[in-house]
Amino acid sequence: MSDDDWIPPPVLVAVDLVIFTLRDSVLQVLLVERGIEPFRGAWALPGGFLADDREDVLAAAHRELKEEADLDASRLHLEQLGAYGKPDRDPRGRVLSVAYLAIAPGLPEPRAGTDAAHATWTPVPDILDGRVRLAFDHHEIFGDGLEWARSKLERSALATAFCRETFTINELQQVYEAVWGLGLDSRNFYRKVQAAEGFIVPVGAERREGRGRPARLFKAGDRTTINPPLVRPAAEAREGKS
């Protein structure tokens, strides 16, 4: 076929958003209940089609987050997760979706709008154990986003953003356990955190937790990356580390 005979295939471009936050010490993701077909009444990640051929993809992500959940995307640092384009991913036709994601503390209650009947924060374990099922291929996108969030805590100081201005190492450990979805050995976690230079800094005060000895208080250090990284136990086992 010559270039003159080539006809570009009809492809629609959409955006999907994976937004995580911690609420009540549980990692939660933003979901919307679809108010239109296909999958009317099903839960899905917020998102939608580009408004026109002049709209930037990132601008579309910001717009959809505002329209579907009434959240201000300017408060979030959205990172591009990837592109999803399996031919049968959307029954309406060939749709290429660019997925963006973010993890941030203190996000407000969402409010549904446009084609979303309802918007809510949903505990991540409810999706992982199958109690909440997602429309389209959003379970795959969600899974990729969850792995990104978990990896982010290994190598960045993001976890401190979910703590108060001063916090104990136990409180910091609870953030890691919530995002990673597993329990951690306290002594091993303490050792790793203390070995990461500039990650957290003692403030010279203590806080009593329960009936035990008062726990030392820390604040976030000036480092945005963690070196050495806090590798998840499962990853350590795969790499043959102790």
Rank of each mutant, 00 (worst) to 15 (best):
V11R: 14
V13N: 12
V18H: 01
V18D: 01
I19H: 09
R23D: 08
S25C: 15
L30F: 07
L31N: 04
P38S: 02
R40G: 03
A42T: 05
A42P: 06
A44P: 02
L45A: 11
G48M: 01
L50F: 07
D52R: 10
E55P: 03
D56R: 11
D56M: 09
A59M: 02
A59T: 09
H62S: 12
R63K: 04
E64Q: 13
L65H: 08
K66A: 15
K66T: 06
K66L: 15
A69K: 01
A69Y: 08
D70C: 10
L71G: 05
A73H: 07
S74M: 10
R75P: 08
R75C: 14
L76S: 11
L76P: 02
H77P: 08
L78I: 08
E79P: 08
E79D: 12
L81S: 01
G82H: 04
A83I: 15
Y84S: 06
Y84A: 10
K86G: 07
P87L: 12
R94M: 13
L96W: 12
L96P: 05
L96M: 14
S97F: 07
V98N: 04
A99F: 00
L101F: 14
L101Y: 11
P105G: 00
P105Y: 02
G106I: 11
G106V: 13
R111C: 09
R111V: 13
R111W: 07
A112R: 12
G113W: 06
T114N: 10
T114G: 06
A117L: 11
A119L: 03
T120N: 07
T120I: 07
T122Y: 02
D126H: 12
V132T: 07
V132S: 01
L134H: 01
A135Q: 02
F136C: 08
F136H: 09
D137Q: 10
H139C: 01
I141H: 02
F142E: 00
D144N: 11
G145S: 03
R155W: 15
T160N: 15
C163D: 14
R164P: 04
E165G: 12
T166D: 13
F167E: 11
I169T: 10
Q174P: 07
Q174N: 13
G183S: 13
G183L: 06
S186Y: 09
S186R: 14
R187V: 03
A195L: 02
G198I: 00
G204S: 02
G204P: 01
E206V: 12
R211P: 01
R211K: 11
R211N: 05
G212L: 01
G212V: 03
R213T: 06
R213E: 07
A215L: 14
R216F: 00
L217C: 10
K219I: 04
K219G: 09
A220D: 11
G221A: 09
G221S: 09
I226L: 08
N227Q: 15
L230M: 08
P233Y: 14
A234K: 14
A235C: 06
G240P: 02
G240C: 03
K241T: 06
S242H: 11
